[in-house]
């Protein structure tokens, strides 16, 4: 069984009914769609583009949950709440916690799967 950093592989695979090959395929899709989310989120925060902040965080939250990236999910969840409560002063602090989680998960996938 592969050991993806930041991803609970068992949870993720069970979410696609135990199909490991499919799950790996999904992890590649996840990587391709979201590996730039850290950069995108940072610019959105700087530009005070709240709609984009909200969209990036919310989507990432849902997907992280689905693939079993539990820590990433928890970090996005806290951020998502702050966005909903419009606590902009917290964004930088929350980003500094979220960003390493994104990187960790993406690096983990990069390491074990062909994401090119």
């Amino acid at each position: 069984m592969a050991n993806f950093n930041g991803i609970d592989f068992d949870v993720g695979v069970s979410n696609v009914l135990g199909d490991e090959a499919l799950f790996k395929e999904i992890l590649v899709m996840f990587y391709q769609d979201h590996y730039l989310d850290g950069d995108k989120l940072q610019s959105a925060i700087q530009e005070k583009d709240i709609d984009s902040v909200k969209h990036i965080v919310h989507t990432l939250k849902g997907v992280a949950c689905s693939v079993g990236a539990i820590d990433l999910f928890e970090a996005t969840k806290v951020f998502d709440l702050a966005v909903n409560d419009d606590k902009r002063e917290d964004f930088d602090r929350l980003f500094s916690k979220l960003s390493p989680e994104i990187n960790r998960v993406m690096k983990g996938i990069e390491l074990l799967l062909d994401v090119s």
Partner: peptide, 15 residues
């Protein structure tokens, strides 16, 4: 709008 979610939900539905 998330392809990942679409893929995963499709898998469950096909089942």
């Amino acid at each position: 709008d998330s392809k990942v979610q679409c893929k995963m939900l499709s898998e469950l539905l096909e089942e």
